[in-house]
Nucleic acid binder design. Sequence first.
DNA 1: TCATTTAACGGAGGGGCCTCCGTTTATCAT
DNA 2: ATGATAAACGGAGGCCCCTCCGTTAAATGA
Lengths: 207, 207
Amino acid sequence: MAGSQTKQQARKTTDARPLRADARRNRDRLVEVAAAAFAQSGVDTSLEAIARQAGVGIGTLYRHFPVREALIEAVYRHEVEALVAAAEELARTKAPDEALAEWMQRFVGYIATKRGMRDSLRLLLESKSPLFAETSGLVPRTFTGLMENAVKAGKIRADADSADVLHALSSIYSASDGPDWQQRSRRLVSLIMDGLRYNAPESGGQR
Amino acid sequence: MAGSQTKQQARKTTDARPLRADARRNRDRLVEVAAAAFAQSGVDTSLEAIARQAGVGIGTLYRHFPVREALIEAVYRHEVEALVAAAEELARTKAPDEALAEWMQRFVGYIATKRGMRDSLRLLLESKSPLFAETSGLVPRTFTGLMENAVKAGKIRADADSADVLHALSSIYSASDGPDWQQRSRRLVSLIMDGLRYNAPESGGQR
DNA sequence: TCATTTAACGGAGGGGCCTCCGTTTATCAT
DNA sequence: ATGATAAACGGAGGCCCCTCCGTTAAATGA
């Protein structure tokens, strides 16, 4: 008799049974809408507006995320997970250099999300949330993996440090503020990618 | 032609003509009510409640104090000024030791005000407000003056450091939290005052 | 399949923030 | 005293926060 859980066999530490179908649906919807809202208008956006856009009542939002920070945290975690999942997907379906290029572009979207969330993330950092312990390093690790694949395939030069490149990508974020920010960022990312391709074994003899 | 101000001869740097009578009245009232409200319920008290208690419209409150901090700052400044004024008044009308004793009791009220304002004051400290530059040191200086008077009159011992005593008074504030906080504080202040009288030249030969 | 049990929903409601603007009134020149 | 003129008033209104609770509809087991 070492376990009287009747149905849930995976109830790990946090004893939570799976959400009901509608609950899960609403929750996902809220996170999705919130991500867009936070990215566009900062984390002080009206929660009621988010609920409205997500097509749920305000009460539902508050049950899922009792305080604002909970929603912010969920968005952040979701974004990181999506980024990692995308890397796996791309690695499976595209040529290594194409995968890398596309992922870097996706990173722009991720950064856009973080834009409006900057201050709150800092607050979150100072609280006791295990968020960063879990996610920190995940993105760099993912990115390093993609780069290594491309190097092995000879599609990009081997002498570039992934941390450097990621840093370059991140700094795009703090640099610009204009209205055509997204477009400009995409071009910058392309530029960096070209730099990586330059002088690569399989680059068709380019320099 | 070195000054074309027709009426206001004291328009110093901050070019502000004196408030209209009703405005001045309302402003004072607001600060007074806010002081009590902040002391009792912290600085997050409803501003609408304060306006209501002061008998003015919410619009009036916001014209005088566009942001919450402005009101907090005004309360703090008012409190300090009142404390200094009280010292002058007491020094003029009471025996030096009586003046000192009463002022120390008043200090309890001042501290009570600061109680609810603690966090905001810290924020204010970090902002660019000239508040503290102006008021800092004013209270200690005032207190030192009162003590010196009492020493000169032989009413209290001469070997007590005013900074020490003020520190003792201040620490009463961080020490207790109970419901009978005010009473207890008064007794503690009396105790400190007795300590100062002990062994004084004019203490009637006590020790 | 159908009844039962709850988890989940959602919106009304009470309170607060802040702005805007029509109304009142202190002040001043006549 | 008496307008004329701004300064000051004050509250309605729009938006938001968060809670509470009656209603709805998944999940479950008979």
